[in-house]
């Protein structure tokens, strides 16, 4: 049993939380709620210690690399924030500020079902989610009181609520309490780790089309972009390519160091998912070799390569998806192949 509270404790609680603890009953002998006000102090201290230990544990897991360090720190803050928010909720409940509504004791068993908001992938009862993905949770019979660790809920009580997966990969557990009968469901949340492209059109220009006297190697395509894996939906994710310089040699040597300076704003994803590819994004990629004006060679052998880091973001979460290679390879005869993330096109010199 915690120590009895004095007037100084009462004043401190009143100043801190803006409430009079004595109005919730005799704190020294226990308020009307299940816990004593003394245990509030224990809860606060425990929460603070837990948060402190948690910070230490997570800090030791921070991996090398500036991005991972940054993300580790931001994730740490988010998770510490969640711990604190949970503790605040606990304190509010102890003080009677936020008592969950009483729910009727169910007759018979209760069922807890989940259905992803996105209709793709087809299994909407799946418990593997993309970061930021939304899921409808239904308890029957309801209503119930809900609690989630590591995710946002649209309401704390009700029969049908929406869970929003966290901005970063991890595990989520949701519990619903219907009149003392509890059910839990667990989710695994992942971030995109693959980039795939599917060619939708091709490009090649003859000398006449360009308006030059002799042909130059060139090839290109437009492609739809997908972020994988394909077993979740990444509609809440945005992505961005990094600025990077080309490494070029041979007939493409003039392109060496040429900057690939992509769109500055992150682009989003649709809610469409294709098997073997992933979630389709809202933009296409235009992969095009360009050409080197004025070049006349008998051996066109050459290569230009961009190794482009692709990053995802979702709310405050972000990270590296993959390093995607975009390459242009030309053989002696001038036949050119351009490829990126599984899509490619080859055009002969003309």
């Amino acid at each position: 049993m915690a120590d009895a509270l004095t007037d100084a404790h009462h004043k401190w609680i009143a100043d801190t939380f803006g409430v009079d603890p004595t109005s919730y009953g005799d704190a020294t002998s226990g308020p009307p709620s299940a816990s004593s006000a003394g245990s509030i102090m224990d809860d606060l201290r425990y929460a603070a210690t837990t948060a402190e230990n948690f910070l230490g544990d997570v800090a030791s897991d921070v991996k090398i690399g500036a991005e991972k360090l940054e993300q580790g720190a931001e994730g740490l803050i988010d998770k510490a924030g969640e711990k604190i928010a949970d503790a605040v909720d606990t304190v509010k409940e102890k003080l009677g500020l936020e008592t969950p509504p009483a729910t009727a004791k169910p007759i018979g068993p209760i069922t807890l079902s989940s259905q992803t908001e996105a209709t793709a992938p087809g299994n909407r009862a799946r418990t593997k989610l993309g970061v930021g993905e939304r899921v409808t949770l239904t308890v029957n019979p309801g209503p119930g009181n809900w609690h989630a660790s590591g995710a946002k809920l649209s309401a704390k009580s009700g029969s049908k609520i929406t869970l929003t997966a966290p901005d970063r990969p991890g595990d989520v557990e949701v519990e619903v309490d219907v009149g003392g009968t509890k059910k839990t469901i667990k989710f695994t949340v992942i971030a995109p780790s693959e980039v795939h492209q599917v060619r939708v059109s091709t490009e090649h220009y003859t000398a006449a089309q360009i308006g030059i006297p002799t042909p130059l190697p060139n090839a290109g395509f437009h492609a739809d972009i997908y972020l994988g894996p394909d077993d979740v939906n990444f509609s809440a994710v945005s992505f961005l390519e990094d600025e990077i310089g080309a490494k070029a040699s041979g007939s493409w040597a003039a392109k060496n160091g040429e900057g690939h300076s992509p769109n500055k704003s992150a682009l989003g994803c649709t809610n469409k998912v294709s098997a073997g590819l992933g979630t389709k994004t809202v933009a296409q990629d235009h992969c095009w070799s360009g050409y080197v004006p004025g070049l006349v060679l008998t051996d066109w052998t050459g290569q230009s390569t961009l190794v482009i880091p692709w990053h995802w973001s979702c709310g405050s979460g972000r990270g590296l998806i993959a390093r995607v290679t975009q390459s242009v390879v030309t053989d002696k005869a001038g036949t050119t192949t351009i490829s990126k993330a599984g899509a490619s096109f080859t055009a002969a010199l003309s």
Binding site: Y205, I210, G211, N218, H222, D224, I225, E241, E243, A246, K255, E258, G259, H260, S261, P262, N263, L267, T270, T281, V282, A283, Q284, D285, H286, C287, W288, S289, G290, Y291, V292, P293
Partner: peptide, 27 residues
């Protein structure tokens, strides 16, 4: 929805296609 824009473009003009889409403007 079936005709999404490209995330990068080439410089406009007759000879803009000598560059790759998304080329850094300074180049």
């Amino acid at each position: 929805p079936d005709h999404p824009p490209s995330m990068t473009i080439i410089p406009p003009g007759k000879f803009g296609s000598q560059y790759s889409p998304g080329v850094n403007p300074k180049d």
